[in-house]
Design a protein around this nucleic acid. Structure first.
Length: 341
DNA sequence: TAGGCCATCTGGTCCT
DNA sequence: AGGACCAGATGGCCTA
């Protein structure tokens, strides 16, 4: 039962029309776009808005209605914590970027194969992209919620940070000393120290062991599998497990799988992002915007093919769909601006 | 500087 | 039992 391709019915004129529409849209917006507060030319009239609202997936009210975000009490400022989230060591060099952004133009040669909808793109959507999970290279200063960065010259950045075997520091630092650097500690010790600072829920991992500084030191030798300086704590300590009796190693493996899974999803978003018309080459639509634009874009194409994929089966005209997708791209483009490169 | 967006870790649940 | 999927929590980056 092969699925019928609805776009197979598109005539050459239809395809050229929508391609031209998209190309014109991108070129027009590229030249005229500025910040939402200052731009005037691209603004739609209220009439246009009222006309298009019923079909627009970008209706802001959708979020407020369907996704009721109840304010969380006792929520502290993400960036203005009263106490430092972690101890910054002077030895930490380089930017503390959490992740390294992938810039296509820096990794591939310039080509002439361009998407008619996104003429600035360096490649066509169908080109095979490397698995982002494999491309991802972590910066030595990468910090995550449950890990603090460390500076180990023996660590290899080719591996996921969580899987890099760490050697214990030759000298044991005082765990509760505010001036103590995390540098040189192994991963689990960093976890513990971070947990202590953040009061994180992941301290469940410590349920089987006391959360004292002694256990922190013990975990250091446990993880490293050595008895260098903390052998006095006990070399026969059982492997730490969480509430599900999951070992630390299995937790790390699960984390890696989860990262791969999320990276796969992100890659799919990137593919979809390349497959839809966008506002300009200086912007990167958010995932939510990508979904919104894609929905309106698909609806437009389906209407051109003679189908009606609208949620309310209102059978909007192709012209209305064109306006809708244009407005969606405009609206979503204003939501987020990427700084000029 | 507040807020949006994202990546990451983690635990819970479901499925094979 | 283990993996996939999901949601919550949290910190970093970026922008208005």
């Amino acid at each position: 039962m092969a699925a019928e391709n609805p776009f197979a019915k598109l005539s050459a004129s239809d395809l050229s029309a929508i391609i031209l529409k998209g190309a014109q849209m991108t070129t027009d917006r590229d030249t005229g776009f500025c910040s939402g507060s200052s731009e005037t030319g691209d603004e739609l009239s209220p009439m246009d808005h009222s006309r298009l609202e019923p079909h627009s997936p970008t209706d802001a009210s959708e979020d407020s209605v369907e996704v009721k975000v109840t304010p969380i009490t006792l929520t502290r400022n993400k960036r203005k914590s009263t106490e430092p989230s972690r101890v910054i060591c002077e030895q930490e060099t380089g930017p503390l970027k959490k992740r390294i952004r992938y810039v296509p133009g820096q990794c591939k040669e310039e080509t002439d194969t361009r998407n008619p909808f996104r003429p600035w793109d360096q490649q066509m959507p169908h080109e095979v992209m490397p698995n982002p999970a494999e491309v991802l290279i972590r910066h030595p200063g990468v910090t995550t919620l449950h890990r603090t960065p460390y500076d180990d010259v023996e660590s290899t950045q080719d591996e996921p940070l969580a899987l890099v075997a760490k050697k214990p520091s030759s000298s044991l630092p005082a765990p509760h000393n505010a001036t103590t650097s995390h540098i040189g500690l192994n991963e689990e010790t960093n976890n513990n120290l971070s947990n202590l600072q953040h009061g994180d829920k992941s301290m469940k991992f410590q349920n089987t062991a006391s959360c004292s500084s002694t256990s922190l030191m013990a975990s250091m030798s446990l993880r490293a599998g050595t008895s260098s300086s903390s052998s006095s704590v006990g070399s026969q300590r059982p492997q730490q497990r969480n509430y599900k009796n999951m070992t630390r190693e299995r937790r790390i493996e699960a984390n890696a799988r989860e990262r791969t899974r999320v990276h796969t999803i992100s890659a799919a978003y990137d593919t979809l992002r390349k497959s839809i018309p966008s506002y300009s080459n200086t912007q990167k639509l958010s995932k939510l915007s990508v979904l919104r634009v894609a929905c309106s874009y698909i609806l437009t194409l389906s209407r051109m093919a003679g189908f009606d994929y609208s949620a309310d089966q209102s059978s909007p005209s192709v012209a209305e769909c064109m306006d809708m997708v244009t407005k969606t791209i405009q609206t979503e483009g204003k939501i987020r601006k990427k700084k000029d490169e």
